[in-house]
Design a protein around this nucleic acid. Structure first.
Lengths: 140, 140
DNA sequence: GCTTGCACCTCTAGTCACTAGAGGATGTAG
DNA sequence: CTACATCCTCTAGTGACTAGAGGTGCAAGC
């Protein structure tokens, strides 16, 4: 009971239909049971898993990390140290990303400000990109 | 005079050797002249173009946008309005990205904080991801 | 019962921006 | 002259999907 089609699962989870099938392909979600006409039929547990995945993807976890988290979730009797480590690593990554985006924002603002209504050869947008010396942005 | 090999161009531009060849393939840089032994031979102008590209990539411009900027650069007599528009669009994008990353950072911090040394079933890292209701993160 | 039309099925190929590897040629230092 | 690094071309792989072709299932209206 309460079984739903892939389209309904998609609507309720926010994961697109082809993406759900893709997740099944790569083994991120189990293959669900099928109807008489060979159509996938999802249960509430599958739906929760899809929502979990969508949410984690939105938070920028990559599929490998999500796979690790799902393994933890499937066996809830173990320490959450691993989950903690994964989230912490992601946090460090996000903080780094914010720092470089802020630097980037400053540089873009300077570029846009410097660009009046002149010709391209006076345009800072081009100039800043061409001249490596003016670059305040950290290298990768 | 002042012609250099692809390896030297790579070192001086910071663009990896296979990536330079890839850029040639997709027409982002012109095919350079060759040595007697069929090896690519780059001039200062090529080098400047590679530095321009690397810098733009680091700033997160995609290849299509870079192609547009390079076209502008190749014809410096036109208005810089297009370059300005490209940079502005990118700026808006970056600001949006920073906002969502800050929200994400807050959420990750809450997750890590909530994760004591308990078992997985008391762990906020898992819980937050599983329970969509606790999500404060905007749905793109 | 039949048809319309959407949702479903599988499979392959395409996307972006590279990256890795095979297998061979060239260039340079000792 | 022999190592050895660097170069060449080409194909295929990456991640995380997305798009399309070509076909089947299912519910509703007539």
């Amino acid at each position: 009971m309460k079984k739903i089609t892939i389209g309904e699962a998609s609507r309720q989870s926010g994961v697109k239909v082809p993406t759900i099938r893709y997740y099944e392909n790569i083994g991120l979600v189990a293959a669900p049971s099928r109807s008489d006409g060979n159509q996938r039929s999802y249960e509430p547990a599958d739906l929760r898993r899809l929502i979990f995945i969508r949410h984690a993807r939105e938070l920028g976890f990559e599929v490998g990390a999500i796979r690790a988290l799902l393994t933890l979730q499937d066996d809830p009797n173990q320490s959450c140290a691993s989950a903690d480590a994964i989230a912490k690593a992601r946090l460090v990554e996000v903080e780094q990303r914010i720092r470089s985006l802020l630097a980037l924002k400053a540089e873009l603002e300077a570029m846009v400000e410097g660009c009046g209504h002149g010709r391209v050869d006076q345009c800072r947008v081009i100039e800043v990109l061409a001249d490596h010396g003016q670059c305040t942005h950290s290298h990768h």
